[in-house]
C-alpha cells in the first residue's frame, strides 16, 4: 500500500496546543492541496477531544483525538506509541510536528517506528517534496530529500502563518489508547515566571547585550517589550554576566528564533549571536557603534545610546498606541 496523506501530530502542553501547531495546519494544507491528498491530525492530550475541535475548525479534514491522562505531559515513548498507532494504521506518507523540545524528541521516536527519514527545523517545504532546513549552526541551508516512503518533518516555529478557523470544518474521531506500563513517569512541573512570552513563538523580540552594562539595563528593555507584546532575549555576554537567565539566550548555544521583528540593543552581532536570529523578518539594531556587524546587517540601524533612546521609543509608542486605540 502506498503511503498517502498528511498527518499533523499535535502535542498539548499544559492542556493547550502551542500556537505553532496552527502553523502546521497551514503547511499541511498547502501540501495536501499540492499533492491532492487528505490532511489529518492526531491530538495527543488529556483534553484531546476539545482540542481536536480547534484543529477541525481550521479545516483539517479528519482529526484523531487520543485522549488519555498519560498524555497530559510529554513522555517521548508514550506519545510516540499513540501517534505511531494512528500513522501506521492509516498509512500516512508525511508527518508534521512542531520543532520544539517535545516535537523534536517525538519526531526522533516516530522516525524509527515509521521507518522514516527525518528533517528537523524545517523552514520551507518545496513543491517537489524536498524541504529546506538550516544546518552548520545556521550558516548553511540544506535541501533535504526523503528516500523513505514516510517522511517526518519538524517545522521551525514562525516559519508558516497560523491557520485560523474557517468555513470548512473537519470531523473528529476519538481513538482509544492504552499506554501499558510506561518506563517514564511524570513527577512534577515548575512553571517559568508568569506572563513571560516564550522566545520560540514570539512575533516580536527585544534583545539586550553587553551594551546594557548591568541587570538594571534590562529594565527599560522589559518595559519596551511589555508595551510591544514582545519576548525578551539576550546575547551570551549578557547571560554570562548574570543579568538575565540562560533560557533567554539567543544564538549558537542558545535559542534559534525567527520573529517578525527583532530589536537588538547593545549587541555587537558576533557570528554566534547571528546564528540564532538572522532569519528574523525585520532586524532593528540600536547601538553606539555604527560599524559593528549587527548594525551592518540590520534592516534598520539606529546610532544611539540605549539609556537615552529606549525611554524615548517607549514614549513614542505610547503616544501612537493612544491614538490608534481611539481610531480602532
Amino acid at each position: 500500500m502506498a503511503n498517502k496523506g498528511i498527518l499533523i501530530v499535535a502535542v498539548s502542553q499544559r492542556a493547550s496546543l502551542p500556537p505553532a501547531t496552527f502553523e502546521l495546519v497551514t503547511a499541511g494544507r498547502r501540501l495536501a492541496d499540492t499533492l491532492k491528498e487528505p490532511l489529518a491530525a492526531v491530538v495527543l492530550s488529556e483534553k484531546a477531544a476539545a482540542l481536536a475541535e480547534d484543529l477541525a475548525a481550521c479545516g483539517v479534514d479528519k482529526v484523531y483525538a487520543v485522549e488519555h491522562p498519560s498524555l497530559a505531559n510529554f513522555i517521548g515513548p508514550v506519545h510516540a506509541q499513540a501517534a505511531a498507532a494512528v500513522a501506521l494504521k492509516e498509512g500516512f506518507g508525511k508527518v508534521l510536528l512542531v520543532s520544539n523540545v517535545a516535537g523534536r524528541a517525538l519526531a526522533g521516536q516516530l522516525a524509527v517506528r515509521l521507518k522514516a527519514g527525518l528533517a528537523a527545523d524545517v523552514c520551507e517545504i518545496l513543491p517537489d517534496g524536498k524541504v529546506l532546513r538550516p544546518y552548520f549552526s545556521g550558516n548553511l541551508i540544506a535541501s533535504v530529500e526523503f528516500k523513505s516512503p514516510v517522511a517526518v518533518m519538524a517545522l521551525a516555529p514562525m516559519s508558516f502563518p497560523r491557520a485560523e478557523a474557517g468555513a470548512a470544518k473537519g470531523t473528529v474521531v476519538p481513538v482509544a489508547f492504552d499506554p501499558g506500563s510506561p518506563k517514564i513517569q511524570f513527577v512534577s512541573y515548575q512553571p517559568e515566571a508568569a506572563n513571560e512570552i516564550d522566545l520560540g513563538g514570539a512575533e516580536r523580540i527585544v534583545s539586550g547585550g553587553r551594551g546594557l552594562q548591568s541587570e538594571e539595563g534590562f529594565k527599560p528593555l522589559r518595559a519596551l517589550a511589555q508595551l510591544l507584546g514582545a519576548a525578551v532575549g539576550a546575547s551570551r555576554a549578557a547571560v554570562d554576566s548574570g543579568w538575565i537567565a540562560y533560557r533567554s539566550q539567543v544564538g549558537l548555544t542558545g535559542r534559534s528564533v525567527r520573529p517578525k521583528l527583532y530589536i537588538a540593543v547593545g549587541i555587537s552581532g558576533q557570528i554566534q549571536h547571528l546564528a540564532g536570529m538572522s532569519s528574523s523578518g525585520t532586524i532593528v539594531a540600536i547601538n553606539t557603534d555604527k560599524d559593528c556587524p549587527l548594525m551592518q546587517m540590520a534592516s534598520i540601524a539606529v546610532v544611539a545610546d540605549y539609556n537615552e533612546f529606549i525611554p524615548l521609543v517607549i514614549d513614542e509608542v505610547k503616544k501612537r498606541k493612544g491614538s490608534t486605540a481611539v481610531a480602532a
Partner: peptide, 13 residues
C-alpha cells in the same frame, strides 16, 4: 532515509 542533496549559503538580507 534522508539525504542532503544540496547546501546553500543563507540568502543575503
Amino acid at each position: 532515509a534522508a539525504k542532503i542533496v544540496k547546501a546553500a549559503g543563507q540568502p543575503p538580507r
